[in-house]
Design a protein around this nucleic acid. Structure first.
Lengths: 225, 225
DNA sequence: GGTCCCGCTGAGCGGATGCTGAGAAGCGGG
DNA sequence: CCCGCTTCTCAGCATCCGCTCAGCGGGACC
């Protein structure tokens, strides 16, 4: 099984290539969108791993062009930040799955295998914590059967916490990932938004899924909810 | 390297255990899904060999539960028949590899080695001393099944001691590592915090895991815990 | 057995930390 | 053009934490 990896970060590309090779895949690497697209158009690949942020042509462009030319090779997108619109767009354009960096390597392999084996788009699993369910692609959150209405920022924060469910996530990390690496404002914003979240996802249901880890940050967990 | 084998066919389990042991693995065997899951949840295994057909809970269930609880130990599934859909489901659930019975023993060893070498540990192992368990990522401490609530400083101190479990750690080292290299205050602070720790992690359980090494510092050990 | 020093602990203070409400600025829809 | 929603700032407040200090008890060594 041949796999094409289109990724400009050399280290990551090399690591992925090495790992996939060890898993028995034949791997080609393209360092930018243009050559990546050329290779992909040649066909013969069982799957394509495609970074969104690329020099030359963006991952979006490559994917759009591929599908426009009737190439239906399964594509797994890699996104740097978990901006939900990126993902939604990519899926609309015909991506079959996606992963948010950084990702555990096994997950990449498992998803790739699933993609290749079935030849069927596997919908990325929703995030589940207790009876809290967040669907990144559909941009929805439910607690049990109740649909919750979150703003974009609240959603991004909750998604980030749920992706690391069980872990204590540092406030600085949340600030960097959910807001911006170079966010200049008041870091207190994290506390404010955690407050908003609690009022929406916990208080109405009398539970307490977001715990404060004093001196560190926050942790979301199934217990109590 | 510890390996957990969850397999109900006694002969097979015994053969696998013997063989792996001869290959240098430490092997635990669980004869059904329930006990297997319990063991696996305790962590500390480098890999799990998991039969799909099991009394108690099926291999699917065990795997699903494991992953749901954020346990990422590599799992190698064993299937009786070579129905590819079984395999597909298992891989989707987060299995890392599989073998179809009957399999040559050498293949099992090779695959296991590959699994372990590829190393998934993605999540830093938790620190274990007796029934004291500290999870740095989740920022949690348990004694047995009881969750302990430590402050940031207490946590840092305990983590440092546990990372060097069995060693006598100098007070000066603790001061430098847990506090600050250039800490200017009263060095007695270490004693104060060891006191806090003992009151939280030992006294309520009537044990004595933190020993004083007079003239040197402190040592944490399993004995009595 | 005595003496001395190390380690233990309780009280208490000052500051750090986290939560919340009020409200301003930006933005888009009607 | 106005209104409502969202995002973010700010300041007050309650709580918790980290640390100091001083006195006491017990182990080590002679």
């Amino acid at each position: 099984m041949r796999v094409l990896v289109i990724e400009d970060e050399r280290n990551l590309a090399a690591a992925v290539a090495r790992g996939l090779h060890a898993e028995g895949f034949s791997v080609d690497v393209a360092g930018d969108g243009v050559t990546g697209l050329d290779r992909a158009l040649l066909g013969g690949y069982g799957a394509v791993v495609l970074d969104i942020m690329l020099p030359g042509r963006s991952g979006y462009d490559v994917l759009r062009e591929l599908r426009a030319r009737q190439v239906w090779t399964p594509v797994l997108m890699l996104t740097a930040k978990d901006g939900e619109y990126d993902i939604a767009d990519a899926l609309d354009l015909g991506a079959d799955d996606y992963l948010t960096k950084p990702f555990p390597f096994v997950v990449l392999v498992a998803r790739l295998r699933a993609l290749v084996r079935r030849g069927v788009p596997e919908r990325p699993a929703q995030l589940v914590v207790g009876d809290l369910v967040l669907d990144p692609a559909a941009h929805r959150v439910r607690r049990g059967d109740t649909e919750l209405s979150l703003t974009a920022r609240e959603f991004a924060l909750l998604e980030h916490l749920m992706r690391r469910a069980g872990d204590a996530v540092a406030k600085s990390e949340l600030l960097a990932e959910v807001w911006d690496e170079n966010f200049a404002g008041d870091p207190n914003i994290v506390e404010v938004y955690v407050g908003y979240l609690r009022r929406k996802i916990d208080a109405p249901f009398g539970c307490k899924s977001i715990e404060t880890v004093r001196g560190v940050g926050y942790r979301i967990e199934a217990t109590g909810g």
